[in-house]
Write a protein that binds this DNA or RNA. Sequence first.
DNA 1: AAGATGCCCAACCGCACCCAG
DNA 2: ACTGGGTGCGGTTGGGCATCT
Length: 226
Amino acid sequence: MGRSPCCEKAHTNKGAWTKEEDDLLISYIKSHGEGCWRSLPKAAGLLRCGKSCRLRWINYLRPDVKRGNFTEEEDELIIKLHSLLGNKWSLIAGRLPGRTDNEIKNYWNTHIKRKLLSHGLDPQTHRPIITNNHQQQQSLQIAIQKKADSVEDGHSSSGMSTDEETMRCPDLNLDLSISLPRPSSPKMEVIVASSQNICLCCNIGFRSSEGCGSCQIKSINPHVIR
DNA sequence: AAGATGCCCAACCGCACCCAG
DNA sequence: ACTGGGTGCGGTTGGGCATCT
């Protein structure tokens, strides 16, 4: 049994896209729109899998894709959203105009993870890393700090040292500063974003069904992703 | 100068979800 | 209610480039 393959692998190209392939895909989508990805490659004259075309378009060729370095504001927003949503890259990307889930995912894994570690925070939980051995923890912190220093030299857009950044953003551990204590359940909990008892998901624009399932507020912001 | 190592990012893979029939 | 096709998503891989030794 098993699923049928999404395409005839024997007759499809793989690997890096050529300029000619890019041009074919762009011109086809410009004249026909983003239709059925499965049939698009054949119609566009591409020897590619439909999934590959979709990925190339969404992550690279789309005219509204923003290229280049992430700003400090985007950094902070990603951290906030990740603390709220976890690895829901598509939802996070939906809150960062011009950024793709793939780009954010890569950026998270290569930069932000390290940044959080340098602040002694677990990138998954956004909580302080705690070991039962104080000495072990100290050496861990030193090692992380050394690594982070070498990375942040020339990376930090603000040009501040890690300590200075911490001073400037005392609430960098956003989860700690804005959420209620995490209960034992791993399920995302409602976070009181303001005195209005509005879930933070809603506060930043998610509908009740997006981001967290526990929120009862109906469509605060009609401008939702997708 | 050259090989080794590390980093970054585009692209692939496979599973999950959605929805029409 | 069930099934299967199409699409979306998140994790992972691998190639190219930069830096180190």
